[in-house]
Design a protein around this nucleic acid. Sequence first.
DNA 1: GTATTTGTGACAATAGTTGTCACTATTATA
DNA 2: TATAATAGTGACAACTATTGTCACAAATAC
Lengths: 315, 315
Amino acid sequence: MSKSKRLMELMMTVNRKKKFTVKELASEFDVSTRTILRDLQELSELGVPLYSEVGPHGGYQVLNERILPPIAFTEEEAVAIFFACHALRHYAYLPFETESSSALSKFYFYMSGDVRDRIDEMKNRIDFVIPSRQAKFPYLSILLDGAIRQKVIRIEYESREGVSTRLIQPVGIYASSGLWYCPAYCFLREDIRLFRCDRIKSAEEDTSGTQPLNLRHLHLGNREALLPSEQEFTSLYVELTEEGVHRCEAEHWSATKLHRREDGTGWLEGSLPKGDIPFLAQFFIGLGADATVQHPPELIDNIKRRLAEMMARYV
Amino acid sequence: MSKSKRLMELMMTVNRKKKFTVKELASEFDVSTRTILRDLQELSELGVPLYSEVGPHGGYQVLNERILPPIAFTEEEAVAIFFACHALRHYAYLPFETESSSALSKFYFYMSGDVRDRIDEMKNRIDFVIPSRQAKFPYLSILLDGAIRQKVIRIEYESREGVSTRLIQPVGIYASSGLWYCPAYCFLREDIRLFRCDRIKSAEEDTSGTQPLNLRHLHLGNREALLPSEQEFTSLYVELTEEGVHRCEAEHWSATKLHRREDGTGWLEGSLPKGDIPFLAQFFIGLGADATVQHPPELIDNIKRRLAEMMARYV
DNA sequence: GTATTTGTGACAATAGTTGTCACTATTATA
DNA sequence: TATAATAGTGACAACTATTGTCACAAATAC
């Protein structure tokens, strides 16, 4: 095996093992220990953060910030990655350190001038707009970590009724139109709840010893289907114009209930937790003439009441 | 210079030059032509798409699908890139070939098992939600290309009045809540207009010889400020609750007009093209009790009329 | 004290790289 | 048609890098 190839494989091996002895690697790669020592020194010079201790039970260790073996990308791939990272820059808060800028400068350095120019030209000609918000989301990484390792997190949450302290077990986090949300099991309500992350005023791993539930099977992809809910349901039917269909497409709660006709119009049909009626009433009012609610009557009544209140304000 | 270093630099040089002779490189790198020939063969084996022609005016060429020299990323960077690309997968239509998946599999291959596991765990625990739409956007790359090279594009555009053929000169394209938009100079209206890309029914480079205008200085970052507009304006004042402030943050037209108070409430104040009144009336109706329009009277009248119409439908 | 481990230096054996030279083949162009 | 420019190959010697071996130093757990 050529030296360079061995170095790359060595890099992957030490990244995998994280702790190892020189002898071990020597027999694995079928070279002498002297060669492995020389190789490890080279890896170290290449930036792999190696650390060694002498003596029995000693050996080598690779520290956290590991580096991957060099990868050759095509320019097309580099451009795609560049714009993927570019799209993320609208998020002021992210749950992981945004190392993307250092990654981008590496790409930028190795790109030839004309691709660089092409990217510079494109940067101002294409955008992925995300509403930028005032809200602050300082606890995303704690919540995400809680979701991954299935830990119980103690949060202070600000709801309409004021600030309360709760224990939650996060299912995951997601961003939608500039806001972060965290679906989680709430030990206070004893059910899955959706928390808005900007209303979480503090978050830390729970130390009181509350046992996490076994919710590993629950994740962002399936939480809606699995949600056990004791809420009272009623059925919904709403007639939509073409524009109404467009507006409903953008709301993720309505996507599954949406049906389309050939001519572009459509309707919403499905079941509906009664607790959502106030929200839906306001939503359909916002659609104006593009949505006509036909069922349930409670929803229609709520809409009428709201319309009357608004009329009263503008007399 | 060591051989490996020379190979990397050679890779960058051939990417930059695109066309070159062996002799040229030999003198540039101060090695014999025989060595350069051997090096080029190695590059070829590494995947650089080289092509050569003998004879005078012959030489080497590197074909389009160029590859970058291998780059070493840290695992943190790899994770960040991974999720940036992950976020883009919600876009069914993109203006460039989405080579990101091949890039991701390269990363995936070189990552050690535990980081791979970490990413697998994260994949289902974090998401960047973009509304998924039925609409089709087949002409994004033509529009983006038109914006970059400042070309005139002939489109068929479907508006309320039916399908019309227009010549436009794109400023750029952007995605917002699942839809793509293209601000462009419209040769028909002789002004900048915003086109919704799913309503563009065909697009091709214009061949009739219409001269493109000099709009290079216009791009997505500044187009709003530079827009000359002959519309009639009136002033707007809207009182907002805390929730109303939140909802207005998400709309990019209102972000510049939004003012906040200490207690979280706020107001909208600014000028307003009269043509936007119907849109705004519907928007503020959607905000319900969270917005109270105080000016202009035309807007209030329009809101009242709409409320009355809706009341009538739900009698 | 001993076994285990990293670590260094020297040197010879081995393997890889480079330059030179002789030669082939193709092609544009004078 | 001859000539010059270009890629390309093979052989070999000179040079350079890599490797293994060995001797030895130093730290440390048990």
